[in-house]
Design a protein around this nucleic acid. Structure first.
Lengths: 172, 172
DNA sequence: AGTGTTGGTTCAATGAATGAACCGGGGTAG
DNA sequence: CTACCCCGGTTCATTCATTGAACCAACACT
């Protein structure tokens, strides 16, 4: 990661995870990938992130095994970034941290999450109170009371949908 | 946090949490606080972090309600930084991310965690497989197979102990 | 031939991280 | 009484990362 290169001399797994995930914007990129964002431009529009940084983060996440870059059409050549299994396993981390932020920093949530099978709201741990652990693909996301961004990607994300379901922004 | 100041324009609770916790070193400071580190010098010795950065991070975490600065003796004036309830609630986040790092990046864990009451190793969610959710104060930490740092603070941390139990480094 | 979209790269300016040096209040050993 | 050490910092020059604007190339569309 950063300056002294990395967390040299740290002995724990957390420092190793943070070398890959702890840079500015990185966790937000993974979050949006879980929300179904896959394409360079869509990340850029939704995050308002400098393209150079986005490019760097996508490359590092790909190299680190969290994303996989795939060409989804040959001509014109177009690419998408898909979460690997390792990337999908970051869902509990991201959800738990997000719930912590809401509880202790405040603000209304723009999106809520429930278990698609039974409709129960998820616990802070990301488990379902009725059914226990829930795979991200079985989590349904729907609009909450909080403010939402107004760009084509965010708008496409605001109808109820499952995690990992690809976002398809409308043309205008 | 960083340059464009913060994650302006982001709508989610994750970005708000990351403005406080997402800077370099911050989450490692919280982790060590959970492990029982309380004093400026002990953080500095164990993390090998520039003092100016540590000073900044402790101040921001205090201001953000994650730590509380307390004078624990009048003369010579000495201070300690204690986790607030909000800070203690970061345990699942830190543990889950740490387990992710071990699984997907690799390395042996220097420390392992079990439920003090029943002895079961914790699940990745930080719950006990037998008893369900476990408060950090009921988690016992003991040495694992991985490499350990060799400084007085880390050495004091290597005997089995509960989370949040104050670290008392030996004199030499 | 010109315009638009996608997926980038390059670059100067700005802002943070680093590490070494310094500092001040208070013990404590000689 | 003096010197030295500890703790908890601050200051500062250098190095590195982030930003935002500009540029670019491949291709499609009109």
């Amino acid at each position: 990661m950063a300056l002294g290169k990395d967390y040299v001399g740290q002995d724990c797994s957390l420092s190793r995870a943070l070398e890959l995930l702890g840079e500015r914007w990185t966790l937000l990129v993974v979050q949006n990938a879980l929300y179904g964002v896959r394409r360079f431009n869509d990340f850029q529009v939704r995050l308002d992130i400098p393209k150079a940084v986005l490019s760097d983060r996508l490359a590092r996440l790909t190299e680190g095994g969290v994303l996989e870059k795939r060409q989804y059409q040959p001509s014109p050549p177009r690419y998408e970034y898909l979460l690997t299994d390792a990337g999908i396993e970051l869902w509990p981390v991201i959800y738990t941290l997000s719930v912590w932020g809401r509880r202790h920093i405040g603000g209304e949530p723009p999106r809520l999450f429930r278990h698609a099978d039974c409709g129960s709201a998820l616990l802070p741990s990301s488990d379902c109170p009725e059914c226990g652990p829930v795979a991200p693909a079985d989590v349904e996301m729907y609009p909450g009371p909080g403010p939402k961004r107004d760009d084509p990607v965010s708008r496409a994300m605001n109808r109820p949908r499952r995690l990992l379901e690809p976002v398809v922004p409308a043309a205008p």
